[in-house]
Amino acid sequence: MAQSTVQTFISPGRYVQGKGAISRLGEELAQIGKRPLMICDDMVWNIVEDDVTASLKAAKLPVIREKFNGIPHPKEIGRFVELLKKHNADIAVSVGGGSTHDTAKAAGHSAGIRWVTVPTTASVDAPTSTLGVIYTEDHAFLEYLYFPRNPDLVLVDTQIVANAPAEFLIAGVGDALATWLEAKAVAGSFSDTIAGDLPTLTGTALARLSWDVLWENAIPAIAAVRDHVVTPALEKVIEANTLLSGLGFESGGLAAAHAIHNGLTAVPQTRGVQHGYKVNVGSVTQLVLEGAPFADIRAFVEFTTRVGLPTTLTEVGIDVDDAETLRIVAEAATAEGETIHNMSFEVTAESVVYALISVERLSRQIRAEAGLPEPVKYVAHH
C-alpha cells in the first residue's frame, strides 16, 4: 500500500513519430547537444547508417558510433560510460531495441549527460521511460534501475518499424496489453507507480487508451508489417506500443504480469523468448490470480492467440508438470520488492504456482473451443 497521497505523472521531453522520421534525427539532436554518441548493434547499424549519417551531417553534428553487444548487464554499461567520456559525448543516443535503450539510459545517467532513444522496432515500451531493466551476462533478470528523468527525445521512424520482422510488433502488443491490466490493478490497490507516487487519472487513462487502440488495430497492423507497409492501423499500434504503453506503465503502475515475466526469466527454458511474449503469459496468469470474469479471460486468450502471442507455459518452453521450475518462477515473481505486491490482495509463491498450472489447461480449453491452434512447445536455441 502506498504511503504517499501525492500523484505524479512523468514523460519524455519530446516524442516524434512517422514514416521517414529518421531524417529529422540530426535537427532534433542539435536542440539537445553537440556531440551525440550512437549506441547501436551491427545489425541495426547496417539498416540505419546511411540515414543517420546524412541527417547528422546535415545538422553539422559528428557521426560517432560504438557497437552494443546485446545484453544490458553492468559490465556493458560500464564500458559505455567509459566510451561516452572518451568521445567527450554530451548525448547518449540508443538506436535499436529495448536492451540498447536500457544500456544508453544507464550509461548516460552514470556519465552525467542527456539521453535519447531511437526505437527501430515497436517491441517494448522501454524507449519513453525512466526505467532500465538490467540482466546478468547470461540474460537472467538482475534488477530494475530507476533514473531521475525520462529521455529528452524519443524518435520513431514507422517505416523502419514496418521493415522489421512482424514478431517484434507482436511482442510489443503483448507488452502493451499488460499496461491496462496492471494499471487497473494498481489504481484499485492505491499502490505507488514507477513515477514514485499514486497514479494520476492521466496515467491510468493512457493505459486504458493503449488497450482500446490495440484491440481495434493490432491484427490489421500486424498484417501491414508482414508486407512492410505503413498504414494508419500500424501508426496507431506503434504509438500504443511505444508512447501510450510507456506512459501508462510508468505513471499507471506495474503489477503481476511483469513480475511473472521476471519470474519466467529466472529459468533457462525461456531464454530467447521475447519480453512481450513472456509478459502475455504473465497477463493471462494475472487474470487467473485476480479471479477475473471468465468472459474476460476467454476474450483475452482468444484475441492474443489470434495476434500470435503465447497464452500457455508450453509456448514459452515450460512443462506444466515440472514442479521445480514452477517453484523457481513463482519465487522470483514474488520476491520482495516485486511489482506483484501492487495487487490489492496478498500474493504468495504458492498462489502463483497454482495460477500458472491453471493457465495451461484453461487456455488450451478456450483455444480448442474457439477452433484456435494447439500450443506448440518453444525450444530454446543456444
Rank of each mutant, 00 (worst) to 15 (best):
T5E: 11
V6W: 00
T8H: 05
G13T: 00
R14C: 02
Y15I: 03
V16M: 07
V16T: 02
Q17Y: 04
G20Q: 01
A21I: 03
S23T: 13
G26L: 03
E27C: 10
G33M: 00
M38W: 04
D41L: 00
D41M: 04
N46L: 10
E49N: 12
V52S: 08
A54G: 11
L56G: 00
A59S: 12
K60G: 06
V63R: 06
F68N: 01
F68C: 00
P74I: 01
K75V: 12
G78R: 11
R79V: 04
E82Q: 13
E82P: 03
L83Y: 07
K86D: 06
K86H: 12
K86A: 08
H87I: 04
A89C: 07
D90V: 07
A92E: 10
A92C: 02
A92L: 04
S94M: 05
G96E: 05
S99Q: 13
T100W: 01
D102V: 07
A106D: 12
A107I: 00
G112C: 05
W115A: 05
V118A: 11
V124D: 01
D125R: 13
S129V: 03
T130R: 15
G132V: 11
V133M: 13
E143M: 15
L145R: 15
F147V: 09
L153Q: 08
L155F: 01
Q159I: 00
V161N: 05
G172K: 12
G174N: 03
D175M: 06
D175G: 11
T179L: 02
W180P: 06
W180N: 02
L181M: 13
F190W: 14
I194H: 15
D197L: 08
L198E: 06
G203V: 07
G203H: 05
T204D: 12
L209W: 15
S210R: 06
V213H: 11
N217D: 13
A223G: 15
V225M: 14
V229M: 11
V230H: 04
V230T: 13
T231W: 00
P232F: 05
E239H: 05
A240S: 08
L244S: 00
L254F: 06
H258I: 12
A259R: 08
A266H: 10
V281N: 04
S283W: 01
V284R: 13
V284F: 07
T285P: 08
Q286S: 09
G291K: 05
G291E: 06
P293L: 00
G308M: 03
T311Q: 01
T312H: 09
L313I: 07
A323P: 05
A323Q: 13
A323E: 15
E324P: 00
E324W: 01
A330W: 03
A333Y: 02
A333N: 08
A333S: 12
T334E: 02
T339A: 08
E346K: 14
T348P: 09
T348G: 12
E350N: 13
S351F: 02
E360G: 02
A368Y: 02
E374G: 08
V376G: 01
Y378P: 01
V379W: 08
A380Q: 15
